[in-house]
């Protein structure tokens, strides 16, 4: 299997605070990777560094055999490494269809082609297919600001994948989603990504979701990866149990109470 991402000795410190240290990860084509870890463990920092939002203090990052260290997010995106966000980053005033069209237009055009009409019929047809794949077509003409949280999350991911990226990183795709809806949402996302043959890495707090969907787990604790193994093995790891799962359990019961009250 082809190597997609290789990260060596990645390190990041803000002032004196170390947010990431000794990060070594390789990702192969077709894998589905779950990142777990308590808040502040360095999960989002890792995604931010790999996708060019933060510049690492030290280390190497190679995507498809090519160094992407120090590249701007837009360059990394055009190479085929895309991401979604914990808080969906969409164009709030525009409808779902327009959001997808703008995303596709930017992904598909370079140079003078940028001056061609955005709403070309062929592109509109592709957008409809893409929306259908992420099951957001019912909300086609609703402004993104007015969407339910789950649909907005799906739109965010749909916009991140218009390029048919090689690798996509999803930052907490199920955060802010009620427990009952989580699996439905993940089913849609994983089915769509499988259809597009995209390798995926996502950050997740819910261990049930991790167990169900991933082929490999990366557990973060205090800026370091303390475990890199298949889920069954990782979730039995004593350190993971102590530093990640224990804290998550506490967190998820707390979360359930909140949704119960709402």
């Amino acid at each position: 299997m082809a190597r997609v991402l290789e990260v060596h000795d990645l390190e990041k410190s803000f002032g004196g605070v170390v947010a990431a240290r000794d990060i070594n990860v390789t990702i192969d084509e077709g894998e589905t990777i779950g990142i777990i870890g308590a808040n502040g463990a360095g999960k989002t920092t890792f995604v931010n560094m790999v996708t060019g939002y933060l510049r690492p203090s030290a280390g190497r990052i190679e995507f498809m055999g090519r160094s992407i260290l120090g590249m701007a997010p837009r360059r990394i995106t055009t190479l085929g490494l895309c991401r979604s966000f914990q808080v969906p980053q969409v164009f709030g005033s525009e409808t779902v269809f327009e959001n997808v069209m703008i995303a596709m237009g930017i992904a598909e055009s370079r140079g003078p082609a940028l001056l061609a009409p955005l709403f070309a019929p062929a592109r509109a047809a592709r957008a409809e297919t893409h929306m259908a794949r992420y099951q957001i077509a019912d909300y086609r003409d609703v402004a993104a600001d007015a969407l339910p949280q789950g649909v907005r999350k799906l739109l965010d991911i749909a916009m991140a994948t218009v390029r048919k990226p090689k690798l996509v990183m999803l930052d907490e795709p199920t955060s802010g989603i009620s427990v009952e809806e989580k699996f439905g949402l993940m089913d849609i996302i994983m089915a769509a990504l499988r259809e597009e043959e995209t390798t995926v890495l996502f950050i997740e707090h819910d261990m049930e979701i991790v167990e169900r969907y991933v082929s490999r787990v990366l557990a973060f604790y205090q800026g370091e990866i303390i475990c890199d193994a298949p889920p069954a093995e990782a979730l039995e790891d004593p350190r993971v149990k102590e530093f990640v799962v224990g804290q998550e359990l506490h967190r998820s019961t707390h979360g359930a109470e909140e949704t119960g009250n709402a």
Binding site: T77, G92, A103, G105, R163
Partner: peptide, 18 residues
């Protein structure tokens, strides 16, 4: 159409590749 993208969300625009 990028006018809208710039006004609404520069981060998303950047992560769309522009």
């Amino acid at each position: 159409a990028m006018t809208i993208a710039v006004r609404e969300n520069e981060i998303r625009l950047e992560y769309l590749g522009y």
